[in-house]
Design a protein around this nucleic acid. Structure first.
Lengths: 143, 143
DNA sequence: TTCAGTGCAAAGCGTTTGCATTGAA
DNA sequence: TTCAATGCAAACGCTTTGCACTGAA
């Protein structure tokens, strides 16, 4: 189990390589993704984008996230209740611990849990395609 | 790790004990919950209820699910994409394996994974309030 | 008798989409 | 020059809510 640092992604290169036009809105949006280590939702990305270029629309944010998701460049997370939140797909796989009081998202990774998941699925006659593991918790206070 | 059989719940008794009126729509709805072992969504519960009493409204289904959830009598699951699905809260805690091809939900339980989750959270300075573990997979074909 | 619970229709929220226009290639 | 991508507004799917009525206690 380890905490991780966020790696950077070459979103523009990935879009180009996929034959997808590098428009002004998309440049702004991927710039925002590169500049963040958190897990913003579409509206938050839209706000940050609008601060740079007020002509960008929320639809375009949604459409761009869909494109990037299709390329595997970002991951979409649907945490409890709220809207989808996005994060760059760089780095190793990890799961999330969500702070119930602040909404903060902490990433962690556990090979042991992954192994156990695969073992359980196998026993049930399945192959795991993907999974979702989210811990919802509160900061432990010193005794 | 074990597969489980679904236990039965005394929803009517729980509502009564909580001082909540046992109306006709609610009787129909909890009857449906008692009669099923699957994980129906609100619309599906509504359809089954309407077959028994066509005057029941979808709003009442939602409101009743909210009440039962508040009592801890049912659990609400938000699996990928789709609407919330409900299940009786009887029996031990378990997690879910969702068949990507059929939508079937298979329940499983792993103390080892639970322990690991708590250990990870503790290391990160958190107490786990609850968690969500979902495996999405496909039936393994015999080699 | 009373007020919690209901059905209905309308609104809410996050997200997607149809369409005429624009701008990257 | 062309057609993918855009902004806008309207629609979507799921869920909640305001309201006047109803029926469980």
């Amino acid at each position: 189990m380890t905490d991780r640092a966020a790696p950077k992604r070459d979103y523009e290169g990935e879009l180009k390589r996929a034959g997808i036009r590098l428009t002004r809105p998309r440049k702004v949006i991927v710039g925002i993704l590169q500049a963040t280590d958190d897990h913003p939702d579409a509206l938050e990305i839209f706000r940050r984008a609008a601060a740079i270029d007020p002509s960008i629309s929320l639809s375009t944010v949604y459409r761009t996230m869909k494109v990037l998701e299709g390329l595997g460049a970002i991951h979409r997370h649907a945490f409890e209740g709220g809207p989808s939140r996005f994060e760059g797909a760089g780095g190793e796989h990890h799961d999330h611990l969500i702070d119930l009081d602040t909404g903060d998202v902490i990433e962690f990774q556990s090979d042991k849990i992954e192994d156990l998941q695969n073992e359980i699925a196998r026993r049930l006659g399945y192959d795991v395609v993907h999974h979702r593991l989210e811990l919802y918790g509160r900061k432990r206070r010193k005794a």
